[in-house]
Design a binder for these strands. Structure first.
Length: 262
DNA sequence: ATGGTCGCAAGGCGA
């Protein structure tokens, strides 16, 4: 089973590029977690994807944020929202269960950006990450295959930025953000891309629209796939579909995927 | 040092 994450930066703006990638030679994703759909549930063009054979589950809001899951397999037990703060109205978390040869819990996430930092945006990011840590811990206790994937808005290491010095002081690269990411990861998850390529430089998932970042190779790696031990045991391959950034009217992010023996 | 580019949606905010 191939599972992917793709921050599309607006479903309306990506209504050509997203199906183009889904149909692309070699893409062949079974489950796709989308971020920044920037749409309410009722406005999401679900029939476009249903006509392609996908089941669609959305957790949207007006104008900003919003996550969704597309799946060739039935989506069961869909839940929306990250537990831990009933007053949090931002649509950034969706879970579903899919069954191929194995049953997997899929958690699609859009972690807060946190800029400008310091300030309330960073406080929200770190509080959100603490809530995520609690949710991960609860799911890990089940000792089942779980996949956490999405736009984490965290550059884990200097290796994950073409110009790490340019990100000093940015919420994506602050020591507090990176430490919170490690607290989640080091509970015992496997980060799929680094499991396959531990020290390979130049692996990026985002290139800013500004200042010709793509043409200059000025990227960062902020979209991640984290696996529980039971999911990591099924890991066959992982990759980044970098070429998508060179397509017509692209998102500023590209898809990241894993293939699991499931 | 500043502003550079997008998306949403219709003026700025978020990234």
């Amino acid at each position: 089973m191939k599972i992917a994450t793709y921050n599309i930066n607006g479903i309306k703006a990506r209504i050509e590029a997203l199906p183009r990638w889904l149909r692309a030679e070699g893409a062949d994703a079974d489950v796709i977690c989308l971020q920044e759909i920037k749409s309410q549930d009722a406005a999401f063009p679900r029939e476009v994807f249903e006509d392609m054979g996908y089941t669609v589950a959305t957790h949207g809001q007006k104008s900003f944020n919003g996550v969704a899951i597309l799946s060739r397999l039935p989506l069961e037990d869909v839940t929306r929202g990250l537990p831990g703060d009933p007053d949090d109205e931002q649509a950034r978390w969706i879970e579903a269960t899919v069954t191929g040869t194995r049953t997997l819990r899929i958690c699609g996430l859009y972690l807060p950006n946190g800029n400008p930092a310091p300030g309330p945006k960073l406080d929200y990011k770190l509080a959100w990450m603490a809530r995520m840590e609690a949710r991960v811990r609860a799911l890990m206790a089940l000792e089942e295959p779980v996949v956490f994937l999405g736009d984490f808005n965290v550059i884990p290491q200097p290796l994950d930025a073409a110009k790490p010095e340019a990100w000093q002081g940015d919420a994506l690269f602050l020591p507090e953000s990176r430490a919170a990411f490690r607290r989640i990861l080091w509970m015992g998850l496997t980060e799929a891309i680094r499991a396959r390529a531990p020290a390979t430089p130049g692996l990026y998932t985002f290139w800013d629209y500004q200042a010709n970042a793509w043409e200059r190779g000025n990227g960062i790696r902020i979209d991640h796939v984290l696996l529980t031990a039971q999911a990591a045991d099924l890991l066959e391959d992982a990759g980044i579909d970098k070429q998508v950034r060179a397509g017509d009217k692209p998102s500023d992010h590209v898809p990241v995927w894993v293939r699991l023996a499931a």
